[in-house]
């Protein structure tokens, strides 16, 4: 998911051409207080005009506890992105409040209830402790993300290359997402020139089980796709597993073996995920070219 500052017309216009799976227009931290009104208008009119194709479009609004959040929601629900990202989510009530507001606006403008999805960014110790409650607070919620910069400030520490300060938070958010059946998204890596450090972090969060990574520069897209993409061998093996399970189901056989190894439900699920990831990465490459 590529972050795009909400008050830069050129970046907003070109955001989808680089091939990220999702773009997130930011009305929050990347917009100065005196430009909040301008960014809201700009993102609203851009979303009404520009066709972003298959790229998922998300808008990060200001929190409802700020003077800007209410107006952001009023405009953005009408602009109809795929999802609205709630910043600094600390309690399930934060999500429920946003859900109720979106429902009220959807009803007011005759939009089908549930059209606008929600994502919640957790950026504090309290938010991490409440992660499962947050992840299950609304049917609109499609993902939960960690925002590391605010989180480490709240923890009274700073980010390290190893990321030890984020380990518990990442795990907790991942568990909450999996238990709730929604996506888990990792935080940004701000030093765009440190490609090796970025790749190391992507490997780590992929191995932990995250569904994706937030990024701040198009240069980071290819690294994420490359590291998240299954190898050819993994794809071949997964295709054989799915074919084998298909044949077994046709024959009415419950348990099968492939190359002398028993294939059970978790293996089939992993094979399906490999093929889904492979499709997603291939689609992104097609869009970017």
């Amino acid at each position: 998911m590529l972050y795009v500052p909400g008050n830069h017309p050129g970046m907003i216009r070109d955001a989808h051409i680089y091939g990220s799976d999702a773009i997130m227009f930011d009305l929050e931290d990347s917009v100065s207080i005196k430009e909040k009104d301008a960014a809201r208008q700009l993102v609203y009119h851009s979303l009404k005009t520009i066709d972003y194709g298959c790229t998922e479009v998300v808008v990060r609004v200001n929190g409802l506890n700020t003077p800007y959040g209410g107006a952001d929601f009023e405009a953005m629900v009408r602009a109809k992105p795929d999802a609205i990202r709630l910043p600094k989510t600390e309690t399930p009530e934060d999500v429920k409040e946003a859900d109720a507001l979106i429902s009220r606006i959807e009803e007011q403008i005759g939009m089908v209830q549930g059209t606008i999805k929600l994502m919640a960014a957790v950026e504090s110790a309290l938010g991490v402790i409440n992660a499962y409650g947050i992840a299950t607070a609304s049917k609109r919620l499609i993902g939960i993300a960690i925002g590391a910069e605010d989180f480490v400030t709240d923890l009274k520490t700073s980010r390290s290359a190893e990321g030890i300060e984020l380990l518990t938070a990442r795990s907790q958010i991942l568990f909450a997402a999996r238990a709730a059946g929604i996506d888990a998204l990792d935080t940004v890596f701000s030093d765009v020139n440190d490609e090796e450090g970025f790749a190391r972090e992507v490997r780590l969060i992929k191995q932990m089980g995250f569904d994706g990574k937030s990024i701040v520069n198009p240069r980071q897209i290819e690294i994420v796709h490359k590291l998240f993409a299954p190898s050819e061998e993994e794809v071949r093996k997964s295709v054989r597993i799915i074919e084998a399970i298909g044949e077994a189901e046709e024959k009415g056989s419950g348990v099968i073996s492939l190359d002398g190894r028993m294939i059970d439900k978790p293996i089939v699920e992993r094979a399906r995920r490999v093929l889904e990831l492979n499709d997603a990465v291939k689609n992104s490459y097609i869009l970017a070219r």
Partner: peptide, 21 residues
């Protein structure tokens, strides 16, 4: 783009007239 022109003009008017939205 046209959408940017429109957005900037609306913001300028909003600021001149002190209307919040």
């Amino acid at each position: 783009l046209d959408c940017t022109i429109r957005a900037r003009l609306l913001t300028a008017v909003s600021r001149a007239t002190h209307s919040s939205c």
